[in-house]
Deep mutational scan, measured.
Amino acid sequence: MAAGGDHGSPDSYRSPLASRYASPEMCFVFSDRYKFRTWRQLWLWLAEAEQTLGLPITDEQIQEMKSNLENIDFKMAAEEEKRLRHDVMAHVHTFGHCCPKAAGIIHLGATSCYVGDNTDLIILRNALDLLLPKLARVISRLADFAKERASLPTLGFTHFQPAQLTTVGKRCCLWIQDLCMDLQNLKRVRDDLRFRGVKGTTGTQASFLQLFEGDDHKVEQLDKMVTEKAGFKRAFIITGQTYTRKVDIEVLSVLASLGASVHKICTDIRLLANLKEMEEPFEKQQIGSSAMPYKRNPMRSERCCSLARHLMTLVMDPLQTASVQWFERTLDDSANRRICLAEAFLTADTILNTLQNISEGLVVYPKVIERRIRQELPFMATENIIMAMVKAGGSRQDCHEKIRVLSQQAASVVKQEGGDNDLIERIQVDAYFSPIHSQLDHLLDPSSFTGRASQQVQRFLEEEVYPLLKPYESVMKVKAELCL
């Protein structure tokens, strides 16, 4: 049975990233139509530049190519590739079939990587351009969430054990800070992308030097003109047959890092959902379990974690691919890159769409948070109580021993009897502590235990987050809708 299948058929496997999760716009960027249309555009740009620099290419040939950029006979191309065992030459023939007058000058002087690699770089750039505003929107939604809850005390956790208090907004800023680093890295790697350009079979530009009869300047002009037509500021000066596969490492490393950030955020949300302090959106008709109707599973956060793990592992592909590119190139890269580049971007696209949807509907339960604080705060307040007693004339050592005994009794009630923490009640009825009984409410005010959390939130948002989001103001209103 021949390899390949009808990918629109229910009898043929289709990647869930495309069929179930990723956005239509990201799927289109990695589609065959987008790819092969870009090949034709690159052939047109090459012909236009070659004509401008004096090669015998007519206006009629150029116009014929322009008129057929979208006229792609995919069936013919597939048949040609089956016959020739070469995808680029299959599309040269297919393009030439609908451009008979231009057929002889299509791909003039070029090698397969002229269309293959340059198209990949265009796709990487455009895919990054799709991700950047999506990530900015996630940051914006979380920034709104953090600002609104900047002063809401909550129990902090280290080692997932109760620690000092923080605020809900401050905790959210930990998430935002990681995503801001990801946004900066995505922008950097996007701006650092260079075009492969017009380089020939081993990167020496020998074929173009021959076409222009040894004119170095025209060869350099050709490279520059096509690079500018493709919208790049610069091209690699040095290439082998391909652009260095280190570029793929750079791009997928940034995406993998984004995956790590999203995994951490969504894990926190899942843990908070278990504590009943916070939940992701839950639709009115949504079913959490087929057997347990009360369940409210954090399905979206779980999906993000599941896909983020996949995204983090994909960076190993370009690392290994770059390491086995012998001399000017081997074909070890080809099949692998067809999979890992598309999957990385479709996965990143999915987790950003999902995280935006989550961040637009996060639900906080202040009463649950308050109750958990009441359970733990008495123990945390013991040092403040000791200091207040010393100020009232008591002995630190005597007070410490009193607190120690009462704390152990209260802990026994919590752990052995399943009761509430009654340390404060014990202190309130103990005559030894009568000098500070009137101060206990103040000493137990949760806001006095959150330090500068709310001020940190305000400063972080104003100095770091809002300036970073400013270039994306025009796209901030787009909502994230999930079908599944």
Rank of each mutant, 00 (worst) to 15 (best):
Q409C: 15
I373T: 13
L271G: 03
D332K: 03
E277H: 12
F208Q: 01
D11H: 11
R300S: 00
I176N: 04
A136L: 07
A206T: 14
L314I: 12
G200D: 12
P467K: 01
N297F: 07
I249S: 08
M89V: 05
Q325F: 06
T202H: 02
L46F: 11
K35A: 08
K224R: 01
D178E: 03
G214A: 03
A230F: 14
Q205D: 07
H217Q: 00
G288F: 04
A150R: 10
P100L: 06
M316R: 09
S438H: 07
L155H: 06
E25F: 13
G214E: 13
M278G: 04
W326A: 08
A256M: 14
L319Q: 01
A291S: 13
L346F: 04
P378I: 06
V413I: 12
V92K: 03
G109C: 13
C305T: 11
E376W: 12
Q164R: 08
A2D: 02
F145V: 00
K82R: 04
I436E: 09
V168M: 02
Q458P: 14
P10Y: 15
D223V: 03
R337N: 10
L211V: 04
A3I: 03
S474F: 13
I265G: 10
A392R: 06
M476S: 13
K82G: 12
G451L: 05
A322D: 13
Q458E: 04
L130Q: 05
A18C: 00
N357S: 12
P162K: 08
A90R: 04
D422K: 15
R196G: 09
F74G: 06
R33Q: 11
V413L: 07
D349K: 13
V315K: 09
Y432Q: 00
L179K: 06
K246R: 12
Q61P: 14
Q439Y: 14
F232A: 01
L135Y: 00
T354L: 09
G8L: 10
D332V: 05
P16E: 09
E280A: 13
E148A: 01
I403T: 04
L352T: 09
K134T: 08
H7T: 13
M292Q: 11
S140G: 14
A322I: 00
S112G: 11
R137T: 12
D120A: 03
T94F: 05
R137I: 09
K276E: 13
K199A: 06
V251A: 15
R85D: 02
L423N: 15
